[in-house]
């Protein structure tokens, strides 16, 4: 290499700004090495695409019955891949629509609990003392309320409504989130970098936003992936009790409920929604496990 080219090379190297690898990028790479977690990710991706695209591709509608086929088993000839239910509605489309609702409930309710839980828990934990005491006793108070009773009262007062389900589930789930976040915040707020930020003149709210919340995310992400299936299950349970979504809309829980009633005559009407539900829950749990392993390793540095 001649002197000139070497100089040019070194200059080029000098100008290059080195890109750092954040802890999240590291965690992402660790996650990709975990086969179960990757499989779960793939399953979830396929599931989401399917429930969105599926109903569009099908010739059938989730509410209009096929008058010629009541309770028919799955068959390619009739075009009902998953069969039909007792009212002649196509089960494939209904399972996909049910999936939309179930996943939506899972995501939205978790998001609601996430936002409330993080802000509530971070504030309680960071300010500590009396503020913490009052805020957490309030949480304990709500905790003591019987959840099912709360939901039934809501349903009776406001009527059955999908948004009410979001509210009801979110209103209960943020309690757990707030407790977890508070605990984490308690340990974070004594770290040197928080004091450094105070010495740099940052206000309390700036510290919470810039330093506390970003450092909480690792734990929170794991908890979120474990909350989504839990919420889906709660919704299923509500639907099973007949408190969930309203016909003709449906959810996996509602479909399982209907399927269970016809188990002896039409086992397929239980089989398909139940397997989709189970598969999704499995995938979320595996993903959660994988994320925990990837993010946890005691901040591997």
């Amino acid at each position: 290499m001649s002197e000139a080219t070497r100089d040019a090379f070194e200059q080029a190297m000098d100008r290059r700004v080195i890109r750092g690898r954040s802890l999240y990028v590291d965690a992402w790479h660790r996650l990709l090495k975990n086969k179960a977690a990757v499989a779960a990710l793939v399953v979830l991706a396929i599931m989401i695409i399917m429930v969105i695209v599926g109903p569009m591709l099908s010739d059938w509608d989730h509410e209009i019955p096929d008058w010629d086929h009541y309770s028919t088993p799955p068959s390619l000839e009739t075009g009902h891949l998953f069969g039909t239910d007792a009212l002649g509605r196509d089960l494939f489309v209904r399972t996909m629509i049910g999936g939309q609702i179930s996943l939506l409930v899972g995501l939205v309710a978790t998001l609601v609990s996430l936002v409330i839980g993080i802000s509530y828990g971070a504030v309680a934990g960071y300010f500590g003392g009396r503020v913490d005491n009052i805020m957490m006793r309030f949480v304990d108070g709500i905790y003591a309320m019987p959840f099912m009773f709360f939901v039934i009262v809501l349903m009776v007062i406001f009527g059955r409504n999908i948004f009410l389900i979001f509210v009801a589930i979110g209103a209960v789930n943020w309690l757990d989130m707030a407790r977890i976040v508070r605990g984490q915040t308690l340990s974070l707020k004594n770290k040197d970098f928080v004091e450094a930020a105070r010495a740099c003149g940052a206000t309390e709210m700036q510290i919470i936003r810039r330093h506390i919340v970003p450092n909480l995310l690792g734990v929170v992400i794991v908890y979120v992936t474990l909350t989504i299936p839990q919420v889906i299950l709660v919704e299923s349970f509500l639907s099973f009790l007949g408190l969930g979504v309203q016909e003709p809309l449906t959810s996996w829980g509602a479909l399982v409920n209907e399927g269970a009633q016809e188990l002896e005559t039409a086992p397929w009407s239980l089989l398909f929604p139940a397997s989709f539900l189970a598969l999704t829950l499995f995938a979320f749990n595996f993903l959660g496990d994988g994320l925990r392993d990837a993010l946890d390793p005691k901040d591997r540095f």
């Binding site: 802890l23 770290k191 040197d192 970098f193 740099c200 003149g201 810039r210 450092n215 901040d299 540095f301």
Partner: peptide, 22 residues
Amino acid sequence: RGKRREIQLIFQDPSGSLDPRM
């Protein structure tokens, strides 16, 4: 807060005083 611009602090634990996410 305004005065802190003029008086700054350096910490004992080098990595603990730096936010790992930044």
